[in-house]
Each structure stands twice: as C-alpha cells, then as structure tokens.
Design a protein around this nucleic acid. Structure first.
Lengths: 227, 227
DNA sequence: GTGCCGAATTCGGAATTCCGAATTCGTATT
DNA sequence: AATACGAATTCGGAATTCCGAATTCGGCAC
C-alpha cells in the first residue's frame, strides 16, 4: 500500500503555486511580493509563505526589492542568454546519451512513443493552440529527452531554471514567427535520437539551443527597448 | 556609504554553516538531523533551522529519513558519476569560453595570475597539506575557470552541487594516488586556457572531468563495498 | 518469555506573537 | 507653500506556542 496523500505540506504547495504563477506571468516580473497578502489570499499563515519565498529567492525567481520586501525577479536578457549556453552544453550531452541508449536498445518503447507524440503535438501548426500549452509541449519535449538520457542530474539541475525559460518563451512565442522553426528543429532532433545517431543528434541539439538562445535574447532585448 | 553589515539573517548563516558541515563531513552521511538539537547548539530558535533545512533538502544534501525527520543524504556513487558527466559538459563550455576571452584580450591580469597561483599551490606536491585545504584548492581552480568564462549561470547552477563534490573528493583524495595526476591535468588546462587555445582547453577540461568522475565513482563504490 | 496493545514522548510543520527596521503620512515651522 | 521632523503604519525575520503524526517504551495477556 502507498502512504496515501500524507500530509499537505503547505510549504511545498505554496512553493509550486508561486513557481507556476511566476512562470506563466500571472505574477509578472517586477511585481511586489508581500508575505501577508499571499498568506491571506492562499488562506495559510505567513510561515509556509516565508519558507517558499526563501526557496524562490535561491532560485532567482524573486529578489529583494530595493526598498523593503521582495519582488518577482525581472527577466534579464543577458542571464537568459547565458542560461541557453548552459542548456546547449547539457542538451548536447543528453541528446548524445539518449541516442546511444536507443542505439544500444536500452530505451523503452513507451518513452520513444512519448517523444514522438510530443513532437507530433507541437508540430501540428495550429494557431489556435493557446500559448501556455505550446510552451508546455516545448518543456515536455526537452525534459523527455533529458529523461531518455538516463542522467537524473541533468533534470535536477535544470529543473529550477525552467520557470525562467518558460517566462522568456512566452514572450518569444508571442511573436509567432519562431514557432514553426523551433518545432522543425525538435522534429529533427527526435528523428536523430530515435535513429540512434548520437553524433548528429548531439550536434542538432546543441545547435537548437544556441539558436533558441540567440532568438530569445534578441526578442527580449527588443521587448525591453520598446518598453 | 555602504549599508554595513545590515541584519544577521540567521537563515542564511545557518544554511551556510550546515552546508559546510556536510561538505567537510563534520556531519557525516546518514547522520540524523533533529531541528531542536541544532537550534539549541547554534543558540537560535527552530524557525531559521527549519528554513535552512528546507533549502538543503531541495539541494539534496539532506533527505527525509525513513522514519521521521531528516538525515544527511548518503553519498550516492551513481549520482556522483552522473554529476561528473554534467560537469564534463559545463567544464568544456567554460574552458572554451575562458580561453576565448583570453585570446580576445578580455581577461584581466589579476584573474590570470590568480589561476596560475591556484595551480602552483595545488601542484606543490606537499603531503603535509591538509586534505580540506587541497579540496579547497581544487574547488577554487574550477570556480576560477567558471568565473573566467564570464558565464554567471554556470557558477550559479553548479554552486549547490559543490558540497556533494567536496564530500566525494575528501574520500577519493584520502587514497592519495590520484592527487598528483589531478593537478597535472589542472596545470595543463590552465596552460591551454592562458594560451588562448580554446579548442584544446575545452577538450582537456572535458577529459579531466570524465577521468575524475570515473576515478571517484570507482573509489566510492570500493568504499561502499568495504563497509 | 514473547508478543501485542496503548500511553507518553519526540519530532516536524503550521499558526500566532513579538520585535526591529524602514517607509509613509501628517503636522509644524520657516 | 515647501520642507523637515516625527509618529504611526507596514513589513519581514525570529521566537514561541500549538497540533497532528510517528516512534518508543512499558505493561499486560497469552
């Protein structure tokens, strides 16, 4: 038997709630954070709020506002660019390992099918798909790839970074022009991984992250300039 | 004028204290953690202790012990091995960027001198150097390289992982046989970076992390077997 | 003597309260 | 009317208290 829902563990609930709120820009960059407000609106005491904010601060999603208290961290195009360079390196690693696992016959049929399904979903160029769903598909694609590399550390280490990436992706995909290209690249990466071509898959994966990073930094800087 | 020491911020103090204690194995893997105990021994209430433990849990340095409460996370040879693979990818990236910055003349004299000094210190094959100091030199070397790559995200993302690495390095370096080789490789990497040879530096850096990872996983597994 | 049931203790998470610091608003003085 | 001083409010961190759950220990029955 499983231990069942166990305790609610408010800290964790609050943490996740706030993280998604920041990722989907419900809490926009720069928004002032007041512990008391959040506590009241979520119906809990300030204690778990404080804990969760501590975690988010370490994660760079909130920061101390100049005067007093915290605010949602603004998007920093430069930081995003550097983050994409890190992703380039790790995506390359994961794609290589994933392709090698496929080639060695160590991958399961369900993970391969799952990867293909995600690509199919994102590649269906339907303008009606709401943006958050598309972003989710993007995140799913890359995380699936990480999982297929069988290196849990890659997932762990990048997990706290995804909210940053989600936020910026929302901005970039608003434009719409990059969407088709991104999913063409995803499809190509998936094809190479599923074919077990480690060398080509790793190159394509690294290149994809590099391109996405440049694209994103460009858009974010443009955004900032038009503010 | 600077804001001066400002508030003590116990959470942070406690966090750092516990982190170093785990890293240097003052709190050995598996050690049971009791909030009340820590609170008393540090002379603070349980509140900041609880906050800090929350952070450490997210960092994987403590985990819920089977029964109740927390314990210092045991060293997981498999996880360390995966972690070193991540480091391989990021070390390669950093070494390349650092070398390119040197080649482009973007590096400062003091960072170059600092790197050389660290290598000189570690390479002085003096068996009297206490282990923690040697470990510190190792960490310093790699973090200096990260800093020279001018990609702050690499530093941020790996920062929470260093305590894990420190712990395992303490175990590996106890043997002593790997020490000389490690610092020969460090010296070679530094030489290539300072020469601005991005391609060779990145290759050497990746290789070094791969070798260190294998060496470490081997020792840790041997250690576990002899328990 | 062994095993099981229950009460006391332990422990961690959450709520409430307290405190110091910073901000803000109001008033008085120039 | 503008500015400067000061009191009230706001806010976050820390301490204390409370509560539910799990563990442990003692006693009782078999």
């Amino acid at each position: 038997m499983q231990p069942l829902p166990s305790a609610p563990i408010l800290v964790d609930q609050v943490y996740r709630r706030l993280m998604t709120a920041i990722a989907d820009r419900t809490l926009p960059p720069g928004r002032r954070i007041r512990q008391g407000e959040l506590a009241e609106s979520l119906g809990v005491s300030r204690q778990p709020i404080s804990h969760a904010l501590q975690l988010l601060k370490h994660q760079g999603l909130v920061r101390e506002s100049g005067r007093q208290g915290l605010e949602v961290a603004p998007m920093d195009p430069d930081r995003i660019r550097h983050l994409y360079r890190v992703r380039s390196a790790l995506d390359e690693l994961s794609a290589r390992d994933a392709a090698e696992r496929v080639a060695a016959g160590d991958s399961t049929a369900s993970e391969r099918a799952d990867l293909a399904a995600i690509v199919a979903k994102g590649s269906a160029f339907d303008p009606d798909i709401p943006l958050p769903v598309l972003v989710q598909a993007d995140v799913d694609f890359h995380q699936r790839l990480y999982a297929m590399s069988s290196n849990p550390v890659v997932i762990e280490i990048l997990d706290p970074q995804w909210p940053h990436l989600r936020r910026s992706m929302l901005t970039v995909l608003e434009g719409g022009s990059y969407r088709r290209r991104a999913w063409e690249e995803h499809a190509e990466i998936a094809r190479l991984v599923l074919a077990g071509d480690a060398e080509a898959a790793s190159r394509a994966s690294r290149r994809h992250a590099e391109i996405a990073g440049e694209e994103t930094a460009l858009r974010l800087k443009g955004e900032a300039a038009t503010d």
